[in-house]
Lab assay of single mutants.
Amino acid sequence: TFTSYQLEELEKVFQKTHYPDVYAREQLAMRTDLTEARVQVWFQNRRA
C-alpha cells in the first residue's frame, strides 16, 4: 500500500506523462522512498 503523499507524487507525474523514463522513475522513487521497480509497476497498473 502507498501513503497519500506517495500517491499524490505518483499521480502528479502520471498527469505529465504515462511513460516516465528511467531517470524520472528514479527521481520519483527517491522522493517517495519507494524502489524504482515499485514505481515502474505502479505506472504499468495505472495505465492498464
Results as ranks from 00 to 15, higher is better:
14 F>N: 15
10 L>K: 15
25 R>M: 14
9 E>F: 05
34 L>R: 00
45 N>D: 14
4 S>N: 10
9 E>D: 02
33 D>R: 09
17 T>N: 13
8 E>L: 11
34 L>P: 11
22 V>I: 12
13 V>Y: 09
17 T>F: 07
32 T>A: 08
26 E>G: 09
38 R>N: 15
23 Y>M: 10
16 K>D: 08
10 L>W: 01
4 S>Y: 09
30 M>K: 13
45 N>H: 12
37 A>T: 09
30 M>T: 09
34 L>W: 14
31 R>W: 05
43 F>W: 01
3 T>K: 06
7 L>Y: 05
9 E>N: 04
42 W>Q: 00
1 T>E: 13
20 P>Q: 02
13 V>F: 08
8 E>C: 13
10 L>H: 01
35 T>E: 06
33 D>W: 06
10 L>S: 00
2 F>I: 07
12 K>P: 01
2 F>K: 02
6 Q>H: 02
45 N>F: 09
24 A>F: 14
31 R>H: 06
8 E>D: 15
26 E>A: 11
5 Y>H: 07
12 K>R: 10
31 R>I: 12
28 L>Q: 00
5 Y>I: 07
3 T>S: 10
45 N>P: 00
46 R>H: 04
3 T>V: 03
45 N>V: 10
24 A>K: 04
48 A>P: 03
15 Q>R: 10
7 L>D: 04
22 V>G: 08
25 R>I: 15
20 P>T: 01
48 A>C: 10
6 Q>V: 05
4 S>L: 11
29 A>R: 06
44 Q>C: 12
43 F>V: 01
45 N>K: 11
26 E>N: 11
35 T>C: 05
11 E>T: 03
7 L>V: 09
25 R>L: 15
33 D>P: 12
24 A>W: 06
8 E>V: 08
21 D>L: 03
1 T>K: 10
10 L>A: 01
38 R>K: 12
39 V>A: 01
22 V>K: 15
2 F>Q: 02
16 K>V: 13
9 E>A: 06
29 A>G: 08
42 W>A: 00
21 D>R: 04
17 T>H: 06
23 Y>G: 07
47 R>L: 08
39 V>F: 02
41 V>C: 14
24 A>M: 14
47 R>M: 04
16 K>Y: 10
32 T>E: 01
1 T>W: 12
13 V>L: 15
34 L>V: 04
9 E>S: 04
6 Q>A: 05
17 T>K: 03
9 E>Y: 04
17 T>E: 09
40 Q>Y: 13
6 Q>I: 04
1 T>Q: 13
43 F>M: 04
20 P>D: 01
27 Q>H: 07
33 D>E: 11
13 V>T: 07
19 Y>I: 03
15 Q>Y: 08
22 V>P: 11
4 S>Q: 13
42 W>K: 00
27 Q>Y: 07
28 L>K: 00
44 Q>L: 06
42 W>I: 03
3 T>E: 06
23 Y>F: 13
34 L>K: 00
18 H>W: 13
22 V>D: 10
26 E>H: 13
7 L>G: 03
16 K>R: 12
43 F>D: 01
48 A>L: 13
3 T>L: 08
4 S>V: 12
17 T>V: 06
32 T>Y: 04
31 R>N: 06
19 Y>M: 04
35 T>D: 10
1 T>S: 13
45 N>S: 10
1 T>D: 12
42 W>V: 15
12 K>M: 08
